[in-house]
């Protein structure tokens, strides 16, 4: 079964805006999913305290009430139910700078990337009610622009390294899908993330439509390798800064988000333990949330994550920002 997770506009949920340097850099992603699941799964409470500190979380409703299973027999579960009605941007297309970043996740098969890429872009376009995007950046698993560099601060923001870089062949193959989207006019500019000098050189040799952007993470050590700077300048590639964890959804994160624990959304059942034991550990949980079922069972394999941002160009105001994530639940 496919799981489609969404945050809607995360700017509406204050908790996702908070930026704590001690947090992992995928904190925004995790907290915005969590906030959106909570907003949908907890019955409306009147009089949450005015300074935003809520007391005991109220009991949550069964996941079936707020998620949505595709009616036509496609095994697709939307968490929460997708609703594009209220998400439109307020102004016309040309007022916005729309950037989309697609993270292919480690462990996900690379063969389906064409489909996945189109699906991701389509979801974003539907969410924003827009016909096209300005910049599509793709992030391949396991690569860092400064692999050779020794900068301890930054290494700590990479998140767990769970993948070796994939072969160039596979990246080029993926890029063809982006080139097609560019030719269709759906995407104006293409970009890659975390390409160091050498990787960028070999990549450029093999691509027809060149990336306009290479996005790198240098928050803590404000130094860019000279070679990369020179190459980018000579090839007209803009070096942009990002603060995303390259491994944006490490193993176990989805299970934590969707699982039955206090921090979870109650969509997934406990993976291996027996029913007896779970009851004793999360007695209340079972009583409140999973009265008519145990949650979905099976192994979760996250496939991709997409982040989108719409900024009003001449005012620099971020109007909409959010994530979708798609995972495969196999049982």
């Amino acid at each position: 079964m496919k799981l489609i997770l969404s945050t809607s506009n995360l700017l509406d949920a204050g908790s996702s805006i908070r930026r704590d340097p001690t947090q992992k850099s995928n904190a925004e992603l995790v907290s915005s999913f969590r906030a959106n699941f909570a907003a949908h799964s907890h019955p409306q409470t009147n009089g949450s305290s005015s300074n935003g500190v809520s007391k005991q979380p109220p009991s949550r409703t069964n996941y079936k009430a707020w998620t949505h299973m595709a009616p036509d027999g496609r095994q697709e579960l939307e968490c929460p139910k997708l609703d594009f009605e209220h998400s439109a941007l307020q102004e016309e297309r040309e007022q916005y700078d729309i950037t989309v970043k697609l993270f292919y996740l480690p462990g996900a098969p690379t063969e389906n990337r064409a489909t996945q890429t189109k699906e991701a872009v389509k979801l974003v376009l539907k969410e924003l009610h827009m016909p096209s995007i300005d910049l599509l950046i793709i992030s391949f698993p396991g690569i860092y622009f400064d692999e050779e560099e020794d900068c301890p601060d930054k290494i700590s923001t990479r998140g767990p390294v769970e993948a070796e870089p994939e072969p160039l062949e596979s990246q080029i193959e993926t890029w063809k899908t982006l080139e097609a989207l560019h030719e269709e006019g759906v995407v104006k500019k293409l970009g890659i993330a975390e390409f160091g000098h050498d990787r960028l050189v070999s990549f450029l040799e093999r691509t027809t439509i060149r990336p306009s952007v290479d996005q790198i993470n240098l928050r803590d050590c404000c130094s860019v390798p000279k070679k990369l700077l020179v190459l980018a300048k000579s090839r007209g590639i803009e070096l942009l800064v990002h603060n995303d964890s390259s491994n944006v959804l490490p193993r176990g994160t989805l299970r934590e988000l969707l699982g039955p624990g206090d921090e979870g959304a109650g969509v997934l059942a406990e993976p291996t333990k027996t029913g007896e034991k779970r009851k004793s550990l999360h007695g209340e949980q079972v009583k409140n949330g999973d009265a008519d079922g145990e949650g979905l069972k099976g192994e979760v394999q996250p496939l991709w994550v997409v982040k989108y941002t719409a900024v009003v160009k001449n005012r620099g105001v971020v109007e909409n920002k959010g994530y979708f994530a798609v995972a495969e639940l196999s049982g």
């Binding site: 908790s15 908070r18 409470t45």
Partner: peptide
């Protein structure tokens, strides 16, 4: 002000109530 961020939301069918 202690908390400048928008308060947590509750949504019914995607509609924000805060």
């Amino acid at each position: 002000r202690k908390d400048p961020l928008p308060p947590p939301q509750t949504k019914i069918n995607g509609v924000s109530s805060t």
